[in-house]
Simulated scan of single mutants.
Amino acid sequence: MTPATPDIRALLARHLPGREVRSVAAVGQGLDNLAYEVDGELIVRCAKEPDPAATEAEVAVLAAVAPISPLPVPEVVFNDPAAGVIAYRRLPGRPLHRHPVADPLRLAEPLGAFLTALHAVPPAPLGDLVPLDRYPLADLREEAAREYESVAAHVPPEHRRLVEDFLAAGPPADPFAEPRGEGPEEAPAVTAGVRLCHNDLGAEHLLADPGTGTLTGVVDWTDAALTDPARDFARLYRDLGPEVYELTLARYAGRLDDAVTDRVRFLARCALIEDLAHGLGPGPRPYADAALAHLVRTFTG
């Protein structure tokens, strides 16, 4: 088995012996993973580049989140760290990026409750399992500037100034202090301002019933990290819009600093540029289409 063409039937035979597999269908891929649906019941997600430690960490995060999350998260049936595989029971609903709901404002209340519960998970027990993400915002801006250079020609001329003015400005202040030295006794406390975050809470990872608009699940916890909670809000801002973000924030009961919205806007704009470059490069074109569709509201909201 290779990451590009995993033998799903062989995986099922090894981990669920005796199960009769009737159908296997590819259902999507992202930067890191390929996903397959088995018999309409299981999702088998395979890392393109297996990382056993990362797979084990994601399983641990799901175990920590499942009991407290007001939204369903994947229930792991089996995992194979060496192969980078997690199999879980298929959650109902469809990804929001493919099937937007008629009234996205209805999503704010459940999202606020979900993020309140997620960010309340004590970070200390997960410190050895998930990364501490303190990536400097200035570095993120530089990456966005390089990516924009490669895709600027695809941005409508009348909208380029919005992006270029953003990139010309300085980033907001970083929420975390820089380490004062290399020794652990000189580093800032891991828990100071850090929360457990999904860290990639885009529309493609939110499931909803297209008919009722009810959120039915949050999937793909590959990038979960201890980091700034603004990172979770930023993907909502980019994909669902500033109004949904504001309403979600109003229903959030966690503690946030006064500058969080500045970082949310900054992170959302960097993430949109990233999606545009991904969709025009190695990734599926719909990422770029969504980025262009949301560009004006993301850079003016």
Rank of each mutant, 00 (worst) to 15 (best):
R180F: 05
T261E: 14
Y252G: 06
D174T: 11
L62I: 02
L247I: 00
D103T: 09
E158A: 11
Y287T: 00
E56F: 00
C46N: 05
D289Q: 08
A63E: 13
R255Y: 00
V27Q: 01
A290H: 15
R161D: 10
V44F: 13
A117G: 09
P282H: 03
R45H: 01
A169W: 03
E185D: 14
G254F: 08
A259Q: 14
R19H: 13
Y148Q: 04
L272C: 12
H278Y: 15
V65K: 04
F166H: 13
P184G: 12
A113R: 15
P6V: 08
A168R: 14
D239G: 09
A54Q: 15
D128H: 06
L226Q: 11
C46E: 01
A259F: 04
Y237R: 12
E20K: 10
L118C: 13
G181Y: 08
E143L: 12
L96Q: 04
R9I: 06
Y36T: 00
E158P: 01
V85W: 14
P6C: 11
G30A: 01
R195V: 15
P184M: 15
L12T: 04
H119A: 11
L91T: 09
R98V: 02
D220W: 11
E274W: 15
V27N: 02
T298I: 02
E204T: 04
V101W: 07
L132W: 13
P284H: 08
A208Q: 03
R255H: 03
E20I: 04
D32R: 13
P284G: 10
L247C: 00
G28I: 02
R98W: 10
L137D: 10
F266P: 14
D228T: 01
R106H: 02
P175Q: 08
P156W: 08
A230S: 13
V73F: 10
E41N: 02
P172V: 06
T216N: 06
V163N: 14
A291R: 04
H205L: 04
A117R: 15
H198D: 13
I68H: 11
G279M: 12
A124D: 09
G181T: 08
T216C: 10
E75A: 15
P70N: 07
L12H: 09
L96D: 07
W221K: 05
Y148M: 09
G40H: 01
A87L: 09
I8C: 15
P70K: 05
E185I: 03
A113T: 03
S69V: 03
A290Y: 03
Y237Q: 10
S69L: 05
H294S: 12
G84C: 07
R19I: 11
T212N: 11
H154P: 04
D39I: 00
D32Y: 13
P74K: 01
V77E: 14
V260T: 12
A277Q: 10
E185C: 05
P72S: 05
R263M: 12
A271C: 00
H119D: 12
A152D: 07
P72G: 05
A277N: 08
